[in-house]
Design a protein around this nucleic acid. Structure first.
Lengths: 151, 151
DNA sequence: AGAAACTGGTTCCTCTTGCAACCAAATTGC
DNA sequence: GCAATTTGGTTGCAAGAGGAACCAGTTTCT
């Protein structure tokens, strides 16, 4: 309803983008410094630590990352011995991926740090505001994705 | 205060990131389809169209983009005749960059589309929610950036 | 005025990211 | 049961982003 808001800094997509970047950069720094993990790798570990074994296909869905990104992250984690592949008897194309014992150790060490970092990052918001913020994000994303799939 | 929220999809930074990506992708498609502009180029045009002439240095501040990104965007716009460089008499290192007449035409054509697109993208939110959302983003970004600069 | 430090802009190089093509296993349809 | 299609995963390539080094012009200090 505002008559003319033509300043770049008033555009929501712009604000959303720079905010997301600021937060991501900050978090990426922490994960790298503490554990030498990149964000895609951390996401895979988070899902496996929480849900147990999964195929790459399942990880793609759970993390909303590209399948290439998932594949690369898994390879790195496997090379570092944090994750192991076991053959999938039900489907010869895929494997069951799961955290190894050292992987679980790292997971348990990371999780409190991740939560603490999130708390610090969003400490400017009250608990109620955080909940509300999540809800708004969810609705925006749903709208954006719905708008997108109309070729 | 929630005892254990260890699901990836409950992490705010994750939600923020995938939402921002969804919105950015959608918008990038539109700008490319309508005007052949990428987001950095659009941002530069938005600032110049709104504020008038500026140096690259000023554009870096206004857009919060890397100076390399600004430089590249300006070069593209200049090659397309949408932007012109005039010598800066006050400082021989930099130039004053401003939209050309065709550049202004494009700017005026883009702006309503940008606003309409933003409205569509955030139509899931009420006016009040949009205002609130902006405010929350602003506070989060300030916090993230403040946390970051402590080496 | 001249040397040293600084700043705006540009280039170069590296790392990351995503798409498209591809391979192999599995499913479907005759 | 075998050809055709689909699907999970992998590889290769090409574009994007950001950092570091670099150049030219400016400021500061003596």
């Amino acid at each position: 309803m505002s008559a003319s808001q033509t300043r770049l800094t008033d555009f929501l997509p712009y604000l959303l983008s720079i905010t997301s970047n600021a937060v991501s950069d900050r978090i990426a720094d922490e994960y790298r410094a503490h554990f030498g993990l990149k964000i895609p790798e951390w996401r895979v570990m988070a899902v496996l630590g929480d849900q147990g074994a999964a195929t790459q296909r399942a990880l793609v869905e759970a993390t909303r990352m590209d399948k290439v990104a998932v594949n690369r992250a898994c390879r790195v984690l496997e090379d570092r011995g944090l994750l192991a592949r076991r053959p999938n008897t039900a489907d010869g194309r895929s494997h069951h991926l799961a955290l190894t014992a050292p992987g679980q150790d790292v997971y348990r060490a990371i999780m409190p740090i991740a939560l603490e970092m999130e708390a610090r990052m969003f400490s400017a918001l009250s608990a109620g505001e955080r909940t509300l913020f999540k809800d708004l994000l969810e609705r925006i994303r749903a709208q954006a994705e719905a708008t997108g799939n109309q070729p």
